[in-house]
Structure formats: structure tokens, C-alpha cells
Design a protein around this nucleic acid. Structure first.
Lengths: 141, 141
DNA sequence: TTTAGTGCAAAAGTTTTGCATGGTC
DNA sequence: GACCATGCAAAACTTTTGCACTAAA
């Protein structure tokens, strides 16, 4: 029987028109339960060591699909390594600790109106934005 | 005789304690004259085709140095490719057109006080932040 | 003269692709 | 049966590193 996390993931996949195969559900479920950034390699290794049977290429393909569908976000901190992260519902931003990489989600985004005004002044129509705040968390300070 | 761009670049390098060799000056001068994102490969090819003699490894090493010194910014849009960009003076953000990749610099950053307040609430001390706004520019709309 | 930087080629990674196989509608 | 997804292995790329050589303080 599928866990509630898996059911939820399957629903998300169907919602964006991606067929919810078992591998895709496993990948998305893992991302939805992980607050921090993960690379494709880490994700693959983690799932394998837990006994899931799935190939590295499938992880890459799935992450690519999900990112294109806007279900997950991708961001790179270091050269040659892209991290993925579940966006959750609604629009928000993150605080990332430079030392331990802990991530805190900021519930609200107060940037909307400021951005619209300033973009309009340059002839732009904004389609999205991402804010990345780095700092030191309480433990690492 | 060095152009004013080259003199300026050399000054920036000295300012952050990096020896201004001719290769580094060439790389930084190019970045300072380019408003948009560039990859190491693009930069290398562009300089080579202009007759500059410098190796790809040197471009990578220089970009790494400059990024670490905070002189340039690095950001990744796609997997396996990191882009670099001259930050200019002072703190600001960018509007990027999703279609033509044109970049507009936003002169002011009004995020400081909001961020400090919200970070403090989570026990963080912020050390920096980056805002990336994507949209469509007037021409592409 | 001592140190730091460069170029080249090799190495180390990550990500993508081709193709045969297996699963789904 | 037609189509899509997967796994494996090979290929394609980007980035890093080792080492001999060169340039600079």
C-alpha cells in the first residue's frame, strides 16, 4: 500500500501531465520529504541504498522533467553540480546556512509589488523570481 | 599601451590582492565590458578568436579566483554549465529576459532591512543575498 | 633566486544518449 | 499492438589537476 507521501506525489505528477510511474513517484516523494538541496547523484545513491531499484539515468530524466514542469527548482552552488529542491506549495524563498547548508523556508514573499513596479519601469513583464539568502544559522555562528 | 578598460581591470585585481597578470587582465576586461552571463568556454573561445593567447585552464583558474574574491558572480541556469558575470560597483540585482537573455541592472536594492528582520527571526545572520528576476523584455513581448 | 602563474594534456566528474527490454494504456 | 519509460553502457562535456616551463618580484 502506498504511503500518503507517495499518493501525494502521484497526484502532483498527474497534475502536470507527467505519467506517475513508480520510479518517478519514488523520486518526487523523496524530494518532497527533503527540505534541503540534493544533487541527482545523492538522490540516486540514497534511494539505492534504501533498496529502491532505479537507474541513474532515470533520476536525471525525472529531475529534468520535474524542473521543466516547474514542480521542482534547480540551482547550482558549485561548478559541475546542479542541485534540486521541491518548491512546496505557493511562492516563497530560502535562507541557506553557508556552513551546514541547513535551509529555512521563508513563509511569505513581500517582493511582488516592488518587483512589478520596478520591472515595468524597464519595460519588462516578470514571469518569476528567485531570492537566495546566505548566512550563518544559530548553531554555526 | 593599455586601454582604459585594461587599466581599470588591473586596478580591481590589485584591489583584491590578486596579481594582475596579462591573462587575468584580459579576462576581467572582457567580463567588465559584457553585461550578460558568459561561460568559461564562451569566454575562452571569444578571446582566442580575437587573437589572445591563453589557455582554457587559465580562464577557469582566473574565473575561480575572481568569484572567490567576490569580484564576479557565478550562477547556473542549466546543468553542467556555470555562468559568470561582472558585478559592477555596489550591491544590486538583475532582470533577465527569458527569451533573449538581455540583462538589466536594477540600481537599488531595497531588500536589506526586510531581510535582516526576517533572518533574525530565524536565528540567522545574513552574509549576502542574490535576487534573480526573470521575465520578458519589451522587445520580446 | 625564489615564488607564483601558465599551458598542455591527462584525469575526474557529471550529465546525456542509444538501444534493447519491459511496462502501460 | 503502439507507445512510453527504464536500465545499462557508452559517449559527450565541463571542470580540475599534474607537471614542466616561463615570467615576475
Amino acid at each position: 500500500m502506498p504511503s500518503s507521501g507517495q499518493t501525494q506525489a502521484a497526484g502532483v505528477l498527474e497534475g502536470v501531465g507527467v505519467r506517475p510511474t513508480s520510479q518517478r513517484v519514488v523520486v518526487l516523494t523523496e524530494l518532497m520529504g527533503e527540505r534541503n538541496d540534493v544533487t541527482a547523484q545523492q538522490l540516486h545513491e540514497r534511494l539505492r541504498s534504501r533498496g529502491e531499484q532505479l537507474g541513474l539515468a532515470t533520476v536525471y530524466r525525472t529531475l529534468g522533467l520535474l524542473a521543466e514542469a516547474g514542480v521542482i527548482d534547480s540551482l547550482s552552488h558549485r561548478p559541475g553540480e546542479l542541485c534540486y529542491r521541491w518548491c512546496g506549495e505557493g511562492h516563497h524563498h530560502h535562507l541557506v546556512c553557508s556552513s551546514c547548508h541547513q535551509v529555512v523556508e521563508l513563509a511569505e514573499c513581500e517582493l511582488g509589488s516592488w518587483l512589478e513596479r520596478i520591472s515595468e519601469a524597464h519595460g519588462f513583464v516578470t514571469t518569476g523570481h528567485r531570492l537566495e539568502v546566505s548566512g550563518l544559522c544559530g548553531d554555526c555562528r
